[in-house]
Design a protein around this nucleic acid. Structure first.
Length: 274
DNA sequence: CCCGGAACCTGAAGGC
DNA sequence: TGCCTTCAGGTTCCGG
């Protein structure tokens, strides 16, 4: 699933159902996905903990507990599903690739679905232990064009991998990096240090526009992203370039190109992006 | 410190 | 059908 819009959709949808509830138990199906402290410590430490709030930081989901925090990351693909007590009582089974099964005190359950098992959960005293390295939130008011310019200053690397670097800006992944660069008219391989002040300003606006569009459409469901209730988003129907290679650019009609860049599929319009 | 590539996993899809 | 290769929405580690 999970870039900023998908994680934000998940967190906002879960909020009214889980805040105020307490964890009863957790079934750990893939022990190595427990990053801290360890599977038994997670079970013992989580039982009885009350969920005071839920928020997103970058691509991380943070459950703020009455003491400490449960942090989750889905890495490449997956979802966090919520099953109401009525469905649990009827014996509704978790979907394939469910790796954690969290039981809450009202009989509802949270299911962490993660096919590639690259994701993880942390039970920590302070969530900053997990998310402290992240750069600014791109949709927060503090994220101004000047902040982006400062973060890119002196960086010789191409712009795309820098957008994917979570310590530069938090929450952008491969989809929204390609979409933002398209909106800004900037080729993914341009050196960051080569961008003009105006281009950085455009890029800032394009990052926000791309993320807000994904958010408004409740995320991109290309593979296995679902909201907590099992519904897909619709941003995959409105992509400009991502996985649209060989199809016309929506702005100029030139065929969208796909290349492998720094190990990631990269999509762009060779005419609109310079 | 910065940059680029490999590793970490599992599964789906396409080529032969 | 079966085997092989490639690719997948991310992050971290290691060498240069």
């Amino acid at each position: 699933m999970p870039e900023l819009p998908e994680v934000e959709t998940t967190v906002m949808d879960l909020q009214p159902h889980v805040v105020g509830r307490s964890f009863v138990d957790v079934e750990v199906r893939v022990p190595r996905m427990v990053r801290a402290p360890d599977p038994e410590g997670l079970r013992r430490g989580l039982g009885g903990r009350r969920i005071a709030g839920i928020r997103r930081r970058g691509k991380y989901i943070v459950f703020c507990l009455d003491r400490g925090a449960l942090v989750a990351h889905l890495m490449m693909g997956g979802a966090l599903r919520w099953s109401p007590s009525t469905a649990v009582e009827k014996g509704e089974a978790p979907p394939a690739y469910t790796r954690f099964r969290f039981r809450l005190d009202d009989g509802s359950e949270l299911w962490l679905v993660n096919p590639r098992t690259l994701g993880g959960v942390w039970l920590v005293e302070d969530p900053e232990q997990v998310v402290g390295h992240l750069g600014p939130e791109p949709l927060a008011p503090e994220f101004t064009p000047e902040v982006l310019a400062t973060r890119l200053k002196g960086r010789a690397a191409p712009i795309k991998p820098l957008l994917l670097d979570q310590s530069v800006v938090a929450g952008i992944g491969n989809i929204y990096a390609d979409e933002a660069l398209f909106l800004a008219g900037i080729r993914p391989d341009r050196a960051a240090s080569d961008l003009s002040a105006e281009e950085v300003r455009d890029l800032h606006g394009s990052i926000q526009a791309a993320l807000r569009k994904g958010l408004a459409l409740r995320g991109t469901s290309l593979g296995d992203f679902f909201d907590p209730f099992g519904e897909t988003g619709s941003h995959q129907l409105e992509l400009n370039v991502f996985r649209r290679q060989g199809q016309p650019c929506p702005r100029c009609g030139t065929l969208v190109q796909r290349t492998m860049f720094r190990g990631r599929g990269t999509h762009f319009c060779p005419l609109c992006q310079r």
